[in-house]
Design a binder for these strands. Structure first.
Length: 504
RNA sequence: GCCGUGUUGGUCAAGGGGUUAAGACGCCUCCCUUUCACGGAGGAAUCACGGGUUCGAAUCCCGUACAUGGUACCA
């Protein structure tokens, strides 16, 4: 049977690091086994709908290079790929469960549920569950007579369907990452399967949809582990046990204190979403890795290694290599703390590795939006090659490459002033004169002129290089100074030295 | 509180009975370079704790602690 996995996000906001990693592991697993990667939108909670969130998720996946094989926008044979559009199919499974005695109707109102919790609350049990003990005292089809239930149903009394958990049973299964896991059903509550509005809860929907969509392996965050016994039972009660997918519960990605949140991102200055997310309700902007200056390859590479490793020393992987080496068994079971420094390291690695041609366009645009005109593509390529090792984020190119295309607006005069004197000033005056008449404008020629003149004037060439650099680039950074002079050209070099001399 | 899961350096982690306990990031020292970066050479963990089992435990078992998730008609 061919592998089919799914990522099932609810379109309620930005796409979190942890979400992308879940997608990634699904994707890698599917591709490794030559299977299909499916995206299913879980929008059963209509109160949490957020405009634009669905499109945003697909945009992020595209940026990451994790294209689904089947989804709302990619199509597929086993749709619809959105739960709200499958609404009709859930009710009948709920009814079926009731008919077979595995579930029941519950007519309790919100107030009654609150009362129940309040009445049963003790210091030892601060949050009482609707479980096998409590259900005997509530308004549900287990306690009402058949005709009472029938009447209530006919009057369209709001009700839900709840699973009837066995009183004493042990449920166990093998998690692909964690091995054997077992639960005592007497400690699990009677989860709502079908809500009063007719929508399924996650518990019912995930089972029905995974079955209908022929999902073979179900991967999700560790936060779902406590819900597993409900799902396992549902697969069994619905008679689909043989088709049940294999499970793996992925470890959490943690922040400095607990689960990583967008709050952490804001606080520590790093992104937690894949791409910028503007919440239409609050108008709050949460920064994304993309806009921060990350390469998708680096972002994916970093995420892949956060909780998984190939068992070798390799750390930099292309998507193809990840697909080749990935296995769920090598995913670490413990949660991993996100390390922004390491994330930046991955980006730096990828900036060195990636083809200049495929970064050129984006870097060019970045410079343009920072008011640095780029009108020489060949020069841009040369510059990128020259300065990339000094860039950690794409945005670093603004400083590191900008001065090749635009005269610095200010120069770091303090950096040269401490050791500045008239002899040096005279050196530069004469140097520019000699440059003007230089025939062959190449870095070696320029350097020769520079060194000869320095020797002639009896000044250490080294002491003149820093001033020269600051004059050309504006600060103490950048590649070899004569290389810079060569690339910006004679006219510009002479001009920049002249400008600098005026303020020194 | 109860239930689940987890715990190897600051971080990601390899290793699953006998190893000087890999590697990477970050940090520190030095070299290269009279910018910055790259590169190179070094430095820093006894494996949460306590009991077992064993000739021998980071590795197996049991407790404890801590962390984390769940305990919603949210996913």
């Amino acid at each position: 049977m061919s592998v089919r996995v799914r990522f099932a996000p609810s379109p309620t906001g930005g796409l979190h690091l942890g979400g992308v990693r879940t997608v990634l592991y699904n994707y890698l697993f599917a591709k490794h086994h030559g299977g299909k990667f499916i995206v299913r939108i879980e929008d059963t909670d209509q109160t949490r709908f957020v405009e634009g969130a669905e499109q945003y998720i697909f945009d992020c996946l595209k940026w990451c290079g994790l294209e689904p094989d089947e989804s709302v926008i990619h199509g597929g044979e086993l749709g619809p790929y959105k739960q709200s559009e499958r609404k009709e199919s859930y009710r009948k499974y709920g009814e079926l469960l009731v008919a077979h005695g595995h579930a029941y109707y519950a007519f309790d109102t919100k107030e009654e549920l609150e009362q129940m919790r309040e009445a049963n609350k003790t210091p030892e049990n601060p949050s009482p569950q609707y479980d096998h003990r409590i259900r005997k005292k509530m308004r549900n089809s287990l306690n009402l007579t058949d005709s009472e239930v029938k009447d209530l149903l006919e009057q369209n009394t709001p009700h839900v369907i709840r699973i009837k958990m066995p009183e004493h049973d042990v449920i166990n299964f093998t998690d692909m990452i964690r091995g054997e896991i077992s639960f005592d059903t007497s400690l699990v509550d009677d989860k709502v399967l079908l809500k009063a509005d007719g929508m399924p809860t996650y518990h019912l929907a995930v089972v029905v949809d995974d079955y209908l969509m022929k999902i073979t392996h179900a991967f999700r965050g560790e936060e779902w582990l406590p819900g597993a016994p409900v799902h396992l039972l549902l697969w069994k009660y619905l008679g689909w046990e043989k088709q049940m997918p294999q499970w793996a519960h992925l470890p959490l990605i943690l922040g400095p204190n607990g689960k990583l949140s967008k709050r952490d991102g804001a606080k520590y200055g790093y992104p937690v979403f894949a791409m910028n997310w503007l919440d239409p309700k609050t108008n709050e902007l949460t920064e994304g890795f993309k806009e921060k200056g990350f390469l998708p390859e680096a972002f994916i590479n970093m995420l892949a290694l956060l909780g998984w490793n190939a068992g070798t020393e390799q750390e930099v992987f292309t998507m193809e290599e990840l697909i080749e080496h990935f296995s769920m068994e090598r995913v670490h079971a413990g949660g991993a703390k996100f390390d922004y420094e390491k994330a930046k390291w991955f980006n730096h690695e990828w900036m060195q590795k990636k083809e200049v041609r495929s970064m050129k366009y984006e870097i060019g645009r970045l410079l343009e939006t920072n008011n640095i005109p780029v009108n020489d593509e060949a020069l841009l390529e040369k510059v990128i090659e020259l300065v990339r090792e000094r860039c950690t984020l794409l945005t670093d190119f603004v400083q590191q490459a900008g001065f090749f295309f635009k005269t610095p607006e200010t120069i770091d005069a303090d950096a040269v002033k401490t050791k500045w004197n008239d002899e040096k000033k005279n050196f530069f005056i004469e140097f520019t004169k000699q440059l003007q008449s230089l025939g062959n404008w190449s870095m070696t020629e320029i350097e020769t002129v520079f060194k000869n003149l320095a020797a002639e004037k009896n000044i250490k060439a080294g002491e003149l290089q820093l001033p020269m650099r600051v004059m050309l680039v504006g600060g103490k950074f950048g590649p070899a100074v004569f290389q810079i002079a060569e690339l910006i050209g004679k006219e510009e070099t002479v001009k920049r030295v002249g400008n600098a001399l005026k303020v020194l």
